[in-house]
Design a protein around this nucleic acid. Structure first.
Lengths: 204, 204
DNA sequence: ACCTGAACACCGTTCAAGT
DNA sequence: ACCTGAACACCGTTCAAGT
């Protein structure tokens, strides 16, 4: 009987490469990272690595998919609660903390820049994003129905703004390490509450 | 008398290279653009180009400086008005339009990703940014004093949020071309007004 | 089946040679 | 002073050879 492909090994080797690549990408950027460096960081030879990813681009795509799914996970807590405004106040410090990790911000920027020009990366990006946006939209709509959220606000605009802001915060954090993250987080949370509640405030 | 360096030519050649580079960077990304391509796009030989920029990195730095100064110009209209909330409503459609140009968004992402890892690029970035942030902060403070802006909001947080949002919008626009920019712009403007005015609304 | 590492084609940069 | 383009060192990828 011929030896057959070992799926278990295949999966763990891919994970091993992706971990190494994420590390290199955060430090040097996607396109300044050489295959040799990924080989070294994952403890594999070039020939071995190319068994698991046929090109550097395929590593980038798999990596982008993972990175975006982490972002979706970070934000998705907002949608689970019945009251998105209350949920925002509650989880924002932790969300903000996640977004403003310097490494995370760098990887977000790398992936976004790559997705803007590379169709395969963009596909991974979109798949992670579309569901998230729908959930955010639904949560805001529920908020409007329940009277927590300004009934006048445009749902599409609000979703667009929030997602742009979350990515923007991550990008910013990679560029200017702020001294007092906790204070900034609560200041931003306050502003977002203003934004969602509108001119009448919470209890009107 | 020995021939001396022609400063006029030097300046125009640098501009020529930067225009060509911006073009290539938007299409292919900074690090996927080859020097050969920049040479071809600017109509110069390798040897000639290297007279004006000693390395590819020096092109990137000069380019980043230019790109960021355009962003600052886009946003700076907000600061000139005595009433930042009114100014926002007035100029936001145009600001939004500028930010959501697809090419512009791509270049913003490229520059941000690069600045996150490259000290020389980051320096160019910071220089353009710091003054802009101070002006935004001053404008918001004036707004608070005049009663246009929620007196409770944290100035640092508001500046951080706005700048993160503007870059985030540019990044988003490079990733998802929206069908109805005008509607989106007015929806986002409404939300920003909510945010800055706070629970009491404009005229309280 | 899985792995190694030398070899090939290409890109950033240099430099001898031209005007 | 300003320019050309062939040449060098390095990176993405391949492939003959090993286990």
């Amino acid at each position: 009987m011929a030896r057959t492909r070992n799926d278990e090994l295949h999966k763990s080797r891919r994970a091993q490469v992706l971990r190494a690549a994420a590390d290199c990408f955060a430090r040097k950027g996607i396109h300044q990272t050489t295959m040799q460096e990924i080989c070294a960081a994952s403890g594999m030879s070039a020939g071995a690595l190319y068994r698991y990813f046929p090109t550097k681009e395929s590593i980038i795509v798999a990596f982008a998919d993972e990175e975006r799914s982490e972002t979706a996970k970070l934000i998705s807590d907002l949608n689970s609660s019945p009251n998105i405004v209350a949920a925002l106040a509650e989880i924002f410090p932790e969300l903000f903390n996640g977004l403003t990790d310097e490494n995370y911000g760098r990887l977000t920027l790398e992936v976004a820049a790559e997705a803007a020009r590379n169709g395969a990366v963009k596909a991974a990006f979109d798949q992670n994003e579309s569901e998230l946006c729908e959930q955010l939209s639904a949560a805001l709509k529920r908020g409007q129905a329940a009277g927590h959220v300004d009934p006048e606000l445009d749902l599409d605009a609000a979703v667009f703004l929030l997602v742009a802001l979350f990515d923007g915060i991550a990008g910013r954090a990679a560029l200017s390490q702020t001294s007092d993250k906790a204070r900034l987080a609560s200041g931003v949370a306050y502003l977002l509450r203003n934004m969602l509640e509108g001119p009448r405030g919470a209890n009107s």
